[in-house]
Amino acid sequence: MTVVRLEDVSKRYGEVEAVKGFTCEIRDGEFMVLVGPSGCGKTTLLRLILGDLTPDNGHIYMDNTIIDDVPIEERNIGFLPQDFGLFPHLTVWKNISYGLKIRGDSDRAIHEKTEEMLRILDLQDLKDRSPRQLSWGQQQRTALARALVIQPNLLLLDEPLSAVDWITREEIAEGVKKLQAELKITTLYVTHDISEALSLGHRVIVMYKGRLEQCDKAEKLINKPKTKFVRRFIRSDHGKTKL
């Protein structure tokens, strides 16, 4: 049970204000999508929640506790970056079991949980491979397994599909969503692709120039855009998305 709430969060880099007075809530078990054009501050926002950056202003709450100063390693967040970030010096099995080992789980627990994840994501045959020997999709599944095996409170996905072909992309997106629905982990999915956002999210946050433009269900964004930018952004989808 995890609720993530941002309250008036701001972050600046020198002169540039990357995130401006951002307030939103990601509900328990929700699949929230954060969408906006590149350079709008999405990545900064993600890094604030992850704990890689600290807000200059405002607070981030996880289940009503302020986590602004909680170090990354104590937040229990599963993180899947754009390039998946698999440890190149470890095998698939060791990549997935890394978090369990670092947390000092017993050998038996590590073995059981890792094998279970391998099974869920269909990676059993690849467990002794090095990340270099994996296809893009296999790398993604490994990274996802590694993030999920620690039973995170929150799953952060940073444009995980941006470098995938369109055809496999829809498959993977569906797979991710299905898995999330099964595991009921609160998830924030970051993308610049409005079509992807509209088809994936329970709700969608549209971000532009560091600000929250609108946070709503997809059909509301389409039918009742609150700002000019949202209308324009939705129109760039060209009605591709079927709801």
Binding site: G51, P81, G85, H89, G99, I150
Partner: peptide, 26 residues
């Protein structure tokens, strides 16, 4: 510049553990 150390920390590794298990081997 890679995300590897941030990932190690998100998985529960302290700064020092991250250094030993990720930075040093690489």
């Amino acid at each position: 510049e890679t995300n590897l150390e941030v990932i190690a920390r998100s998985l529960g590794a302290s700064d020092f553990q991250t250094f030993l298990t990720v930075t040093l081997p690489l």
